[in-house]
Design a binder for these strands. Sequence first.
DNA 1: GATAGACCCTCAAGTAACTTGAGGTTCAAG
DNA 2: CTTGAACCTCAAGTTACTTGAGGGTCTATC
Lengths: 137, 137
Amino acid sequence: MPHLRIGALAARTGTNAPTIRYYEEIGLLRPADRDAGGQRAYGEQDVKRLTFIRRCREFGFSIEQVRSLVALVQDRERSCMDARNVAQEHLLAVRAKLNELKGLERSIAGFIATCDASCAGGPGPDCAILEDLARPS
Amino acid sequence: MPHLRIGALAARTGTNAPTIRYYEEIGLLRPADRDAGGQRAYGEQDVKRLTFIRRCREFGFSIEQVRSLVALVQDRERSCMDARNVAQEHLLAVRAKLNELKGLERSIAGFIATCDASCAGGPGPDCAILEDLARPS
DNA sequence: GATAGACCCTCAAGTAACTTGAGGTTCAAG
DNA sequence: CTTGAACCTCAAGTTACTTGAGGGTCTATC
């Protein structure tokens, strides 16, 4: 089974070499084996681990959450409830951010509608958007 | 009219002193006048400017967008269309992020539902969430 | 005047999650 | 051998702050 160099591992897992080195540095990935030339040599286990990490990141889990999920995958002493709790915590954060962004969308769309209805391309300082933004919250 | 010190300005505008110093450093706020003791002395114009900046930040405009909005407020040669365009660009970004988060919410909620239905607190490594996360995207 | 606590100052480094750049080595193809 | 692509380490940059070290100023109280 030939080993993969870092660029190939990156291509296999949808990331890039600096990010892989970063993950190794912060301990998310184990230190890689090296070939005779000192270059990193990866195997299928590394592909699986990095795939998992990238998936977690895609779903927005923080590096620290990923770290604990990775630990859970390796520990039969731990309960599945731990993974569920990490996911639940993240879901709450996603929902909070969703609500925040909905409010922002409404406000900004409202600013633009007001500008369209009343400014007609007048001077910048008189723009309804800028006037709205100048009001204390 | 008595001047405000930095803490008072921060309290008036819902921010804190290090953030104000930061804004001065990056040029969003003009360099403050100083009293005889070398401490920053702010007036009502500064309150207005910082209020505007904080409002823009509350609505999620980036520092660079805020910088251009601030420039627009001061320039009657510029058209209100410029402000509208900054807002529109930001609205598109907010909508993109909203869609992304909706997808995340659905996926993560689905993971949790699957775990609830099939894991029953089994060992971590067997958790449906972790198995889902281990699959290539 | 002395003291103490709150607030101020500058400077620099830290945060999260990467990304980029400098300077040098290895690899594989021609 | 040469060349260009990919690899290496180390350090700094990105964004928008935040924190911490070390020292100065202000104000109220005694």
